[in-house]
């Protein structure tokens, strides 16, 4: 969250249904199943914290509208309306 220079993928643990499609689609293998369960009993996906290249595959492979957000390179939150 603090370093805007690097892209990153953010998974909402509560909305993830643990289907694993983002994990399979990630070319850098930087998404993994969490060992933890969410409130629905799914092992949700999570970003390992580095290595994301901002390709957006996880976002577009994810069937849940609000489960994954991807911040792209040089993302500046002030510029987004």
């Amino acid at each position: 969250m603090t370093d805007a220079k690097y892209p990153r993928s953010e998974v909402d643990p509560d909305k993830c249904k643990g289907c694993g499609l983002c994990i399979a689609a990630c070319p850098k293998k930087v998404l993994v199943f969490s060992p933890k369960l969410n409130s629905k009993g799914y092992h949700y996906a999570e970003y390992v914290g580095s290595g994301c290249v901002g390709c957006g595959n996880c976002f577009y492979n994810c069937p849940e509208p609000d489960a994954i957000t991807v911040y792209l390179r040089n993302y500046d939150p002030e510029k987004v309306v």
Binding site: K15, K17, G18, C19, Y42, G56, F59, Y60, P63, E64, P65, D66, A67, I68, T69, V70, Y71, L72, N74, Y75, D76, K79, V80
Partner: peptide, 28 residues
């Protein structure tokens, strides 16, 4: 600069019955 839930979706799924108005009914 960001890929997030598109605005073509409703913010809160008001027509969906039950408490979970922030996620879809679809299977994983």
């Amino acid at each position: 600069t960001v890929l997030r839930k598109p605005k073509g979706f409703i913010d809160v799924y008001k027509h969906k019955p039950g408490a979970e108005k922030d996620r879809t009914h679809y299977c994983p």
